[in-house]
């Protein structure tokens, strides 16, 4: 497993894509810090990178790489190697290299310029989103043999999670606005990792506004450690879901 992971990682590093990605993140983060060194402002600007760019890059790269390493997987599967091992090492290789790129790209400027709790939470959230969207990329890839189709599915995932889903929530909020919606909206947010990541950051950046709302439920959720723990827990589940399903499909897939 470790050896296979090593070779898979080696494969990815040779493509230089992760290097480019790291460089992009470094450049973006450095310029955000230089534009306005106020940490609250930095968190906000980086938040958009983490919520939009990171998922997009992870899901596209994950899919493209899956198809590019088809030969590698085929070669491995003709050897006495477990299918599950091949899959997990591929997933981990892609996931870890994307996470590593993210941690380096965003973390180094943080070390140089300083970071507060909100930025560290953002770092953690970014890592988790990277893993989630790598999983979604793999899911799209195992569902179809056609690379173009798979990329189409991944883009759909991305647009759905970062835009369409919120539109649905807003619509519901508007339609049912005289009903108590706290539970319902919060439950809906749990079903979207991007929203969940955003809520975790809201609890860092906008806690004073969140605390300003009446309703014991909101106050209880946002004001305590509980909200954070639940959100991070659900985000962890979100990492496992696409991974679990894509692995399951892969085990039964004809290569």
């Amino acid at each position: 497993m470790i050896k296979l992971l090593k070779y898979s990682l080696y494969n990815i590093l040779r493509t230089k894509f992760t290097l480019l990605y790291t460089a992009f993140l470094l450049l973006a983060t450095f310029s955000i810090y230089n534009l306005d060194p106020d940490l609250a402002k930095v968190s906000l600007s980086l938040l958009n990178v983490v919520l939009l760019v990171v998922p997009l890059i992870c899901i596209i790269f994950g899919t493209v790489h899956f198809y590019n390493s088809y030969e590698f997987m085929e070669l491995m599967l003709s050897q006495p190697i477990n299918r599950s091992t091949v899959f997990i090492s591929q997933y981990l290789a892609v996931g870890l290299s994307l996470c590593l790129a993210f941690v380096i790209g965003v973390g180094i400027p943080m070390i140089l310029y300083g970071a507060d709790l909100a930025l560290l939470v953002l770092l953690a959230v970014g890592v988790m989103l990277s893993l989630i969207f790598t999983g979604l990329a793999f899911l799209a890839s195992v569902l179809t043999r056609d690379k173009a189709k798979a990329i189409g599915i991944t883009l759909l995932f991305w647009v759905y999670f970062s835009l369409i889903y919120d539109g649905l929530i807003l619509y519901l909020i508007y339609v049912f606005y005289d009903y108590p919606l706290e539970h319902a909206t919060l439950a809906m947010v749990m079903l979207n990792p991007v929203d969940l990541a955003r809520i975790i950051m809201l609890m860092q950046l906008d806690i004073s506004a969140l605390m300003g709302f009446t309703g014991a439920f909101f106050q209880d959720f946002y004001g305590s450690m509980k909200g954070n723990l639940i959100s991070f827990g659900v985000l962890l589940i979100w990492i496992l879901i696409p991974f679990y399903f894509s692995r399951r499909v892969f085990l039964k897939k004809d290569i």
Binding site: L44, L47, N48, L51, L52, S162, L163, D166, G167, I169, L170, I173, Y174, Y177, P180, L181, E182, T185, L186, V189, D195, R198, I199, M201, L202, L205, D206, A209, L210, F213, T214, G215, F218
Partner: peptide
């Protein structure tokens, strides 16, 4: 102000 639970979408791409 009108619908407090709408705060949950704050900072989302769509709201931006």
């Amino acid at each position: 102000e009108r619908i407090p639970s709408a705060i949950i979408l704050w900072r989302s791409f769509m709201i931006t």
